[in-house]
Design a protein around this nucleic acid. Structure first.
Lengths: 256, 256
DNA sequence: AGCGCCGCAATTGTATACAAACCTGTGCTG
DNA sequence: CAGCACAGGTTTGTATACAATTGCGGCGCT
């Protein structure tokens, strides 16, 4: 953990609040008080404010004109836009990578990660270790992105990836081994290979188009887990932030 | 001024620091102390920290792993990447606008702004009011962007536009009426018209490509003002943040 | 009864005091 | 003479007290 900075109260606030928000303990619309949260977390308001500011940057909180804070409420279109935005940035980054050229070491590293992903996917459907797949997937995306060698692009991409459900492995924690989902994993892996091929061949436009389409795979997963209902909320971090307008009103149990 | 929030100390800190940084009063590498700045601005450390955090978001400050702050140092490539990134985002936004379709009211507003720009450009070269051109240019970009009707895209575009020299009117304050610069203004205006036309015709790919090329015009201006030397620093906000690597190393005095 | 104004309570913004961490300079030791 | 260790000071991190502003509820007026 490179982010284990010394400011421990700030870290505690950040982790604690993140947890409370992602688990849905804090409801969407309600505006939350600094003093209550501070004493709940056992810290002072000062580091708490710092943490809240950080969470605003991460898109989990938003600030009302009054100065009050409230948990971010995302529409389905917002999440789709963030996913598309990742595709856009990754596309640009891959195009830059293709134009710049890949080094032998980078090519070897990507090939290894691809092989490891193949290995994970090769197992029988029930034996797939989704956690390992997530790790490898993120590694691959990072390896491909680093080829472009542009700090600006990489940092902005990282920013978008930190958005609630925009990252490349956002929906892999769901572990829903439906036939459809499984198939999309194989499609994604094929796209991975095509992207690497395009970068190696200096086919920038192809790499860019592939990246956009690759990100769009996540749209299906978003729709799937939004339709799956409350059970998915615990598995997909940030899903609780999405307001579900198309739900028919079926004896909605009013919470406390 | 929608941003005239009540927190006046915070605002004072923000404005004051921004001023100090953009005018080059604060040198690039030097790390700045909270307490010194606070008493210099006549406020406390608490709002100052908030302001510094904001300036980090705006890309004017950066934070060292020690927790110290320092004025951001950008390379020429960084600025070029930010400009390209604006082109990328604007391109995506315009493509979305073309796919969604423009309303009559939006079309009328854009046409009016275009006509006003034509009017400003129609004056004799020495009579061009650059300040008015800047306003109109930003208005047009905003009007075109709003067509896409995606809060996510708009806010991310606004974020990039707030980066030091990435905004669409970043270099128009230079008022360098060289033959070359003047010509680029006419080219830019022609691109504006083409973009609007593409959006009206639902030509998404064309609008996207035009936006990317439109942003690239700023690359020339960047090179021009970087070559212009110190005199341009006072006119182009943020130019002082760019490290000029072609400087020969002249007895670099090691700081204390 | 409805509308508007005033005052209180709650909440955020600011200031300052204190604690901890870091860098630095100096002196000791191998 | 070099390297390390310790101590002091400087700087950021945290806590708490105070100020200002906002929202709200009651009260009076129309």
């Amino acid at each position: 953990m490179a982010e284990t900075r010394k400011k421990k109260s700030f870290q505690a606030a950040l982790m604690g609040l993140r947890e409370k928000i992602l688990t849905g303990e804090l409801v969407k619309g309600d505006h939350l008080s600094e003093v209550l949260l501070a004493e709940d977390l056992g810290i002072s308001r000062t580091p708490l404010r710092e943490a809240m500011r950080e969470l605003i940057d991460q898109g989990l909180l938003e600030r009302l004109p009054n100065g009050r804070y409230q948990v971010c409420s995302l529409t389905r279109e917002d999440v789709r836009d963030f996913i598309a935005l990742r595709g856009l940035l990754e596309g640009s980054v891959f195009r830059l990578a293709a134009e710049k050229g890949i080094s032998p070491g980078q090519h070897r590293a990507c090939t290894e990660t691809l092989a490891a992903l193949d290995c994970v996917l090769g197992a029988s459907p029930s034996d797939i270790v989704f956690e390992r797949y997530m790790d490898l997937n993120e590694t691959l995306h990072a390896q491909l992105a680093e080829i472009c060698d542009s700090p600006v692009m990489l940092s902005e991409l990282a920013r978008i990836n930190s958005r609630p459900m925009a990252g490349p492995s956002a929906f892999l924690g769901g572990q829903a081994v439906s036939h459809e989902t499984l198939n999309s994993l194989h499609v994604a892996q094929d796209q991975h290979k095509s992207i690497l091929e395009a970068i190696c061949n200096r086919e920038g436009a192809r790499a860019e188009a592939l990246a956009r389409e690759h990100a769009r795979l996540a749209h299906r997963n978003l729709d799937f887990f939004l339709a799956a209902g409350q059970s998915a909320v615990t598995n997909i971090p940030g899903l609780s932030l999405v307001e579900r307008q198309p739900e028919q009103e079926t004896t909605k149990p009013k919470k406390s």
